[in-house]
């Protein structure tokens, strides 16, 4: 993995030992010109080591020790447990492994729904606003507001909307006579619907923004030429817009997937630290397992598994993307 190699730039900066350069005095091992890029990235490399590489190594190490509440402040004494934490996490017949598997399946469903619908919304809105004329800028701005809003402000407003007795949603359902009784949206199985809807509300403007920007790259004369050839709007959408957007869409869907799969804000603000079972997304589950029972070893093992899964997804995506590009 690339992570372990960050140390390299700083090491290469020193170049060969001075002893070597003494033997060949004409080839200086250190020149300002050659070392400029290393000096430029040095602060970033040091900081990356401090905030990413070292915590990551510590995190992986934590997953191999029995780091329970007794050892949080004297972690050096926590007993080594080998793959013990992983065995617990992946033992699907045990209660903890079963909960993890359940949470994983739930998160996958949540992610596919959120990404699919957000992408669909973004694409539809971008298409609808193509050659819209006056008012396009205003509508675009309105659509982007959820994206600009701080996450918690948007989600906490939804929490109010979804309240059983004084929320907007149930009032609307009652006014339309769609339900006889006020359903609960933040507990029970409806919580899943709520968390999907709220995260779509936050995600789709980003998809919309990226797709809009991608569409601007397509030159106008492509459309004009096809119009002369007699293509109607739908044919243009299918053959030109969607066709030329494919590379951007591929990147966008991957990004949305990776972000959505680790979503934490929505369940945390909607339900508090302990979400109902139907909305117990993976990051929230790991968070809970770590901070409520203070079992950091198990929490780290689950984080590592989550990371491995995301790497696997990104890797498969890269393979697929390369093959599609080669065939095209």
């Amino acid at each position: 993995m690339a992570m372990t190699q960050t140390g390299r730039p700083t090491q290469t900066m020193g170049g060969p030992r001075p002893a070597v350069s003494a033997a060949k005095p004409r080839r200086k091992w250190f020149t300002w010109r050659k070392s400029t890029p290393y000096l430029l990235i040095l602060p970033a490399v040091l900081l990356e080591l401090l905030i990413h590489v070292i915590p990551m190594i510590v995190g992986i190490w934590m997953s191999f020790i029995e780091l329970t509440q007794f050892f949080i402040t004297n972690w050096g004494e926590a007993p080594f447990s080998g793959l013990g934490n992983y065995e617990i996490a992946l033992d699907f017949s045990g209660p903890l492994g079963w909960q993890l598997l359940r949470s994983f399946g739930l998160t996958l469903a949540f992610t596919l729904l959120t990404v699919g619908i957000s992408f669909g919304f973004g694409m539809s809105a971008a298409l609808a606003l193509q050659r819209f004329g006056r008012g396009r800028g205003l509508i675009r701005t309105l659509f982007l507001i959820p994206y600009a809003l701080p996450a918690y402000a948007g989600i906490i407003t939804w929490k109010f909307v979804l309240q059983r007795d004084n929320g907007l949603l149930n009032e609307l359902l009652m006014n339309l006579h769609l339900t006889g009784d006020r359903p609960f949206w933040l507990i029970g199985s409806n919580a899943f619907v709520s968390v999907v809807v709220v995260s779509i509300w936050q995600q789709w403007p980003f998809a919309f923004l990226m797709i809009m920007a991608g569409m601007q790259v397509i030159p106008d004369d492509v459309y004009e030429a096809s119009a002369i050839d007699g293509a109607n709007t739908w044919q243009q959408v299918r053959h030109i817009t969607l066709g030329m957007m494919r590379p951007i869409n591929a990147v966008l869907v991957l990004l949305l997937f990776l972000w959505t799969f680790r979503e934490f804000n929505t369940p945390f603000v909607l339900f508090g630290p302990t979400p109902p079972e139907s909305a117990n997304l993976l990051t929230a589950h790991i968070y809970n397992s770590s901070f409520i029972t203070w079992n950091f070893g198990l929490g780290s093992a689950m984080s590592v598994l989550l990371m491995l899964f995301l790497i696997l997804v990104a890797g498969l995506w890269a393979l697929w993307n390369r093959r599609v590009n080669r065939d095209a």
Partner: peptide, 19 residues
């Protein structure tokens, strides 16, 4: 490294940083 750390889950860094 810069690109990949961007996609890793925050909880992966939270536990070690906490400790």
């Amino acid at each position: 490294v810069v690109l990949s750390t961007q996609m890793f889950p925050g909880v992966l860094f939270l536990l070690p940083l906490f400790l």
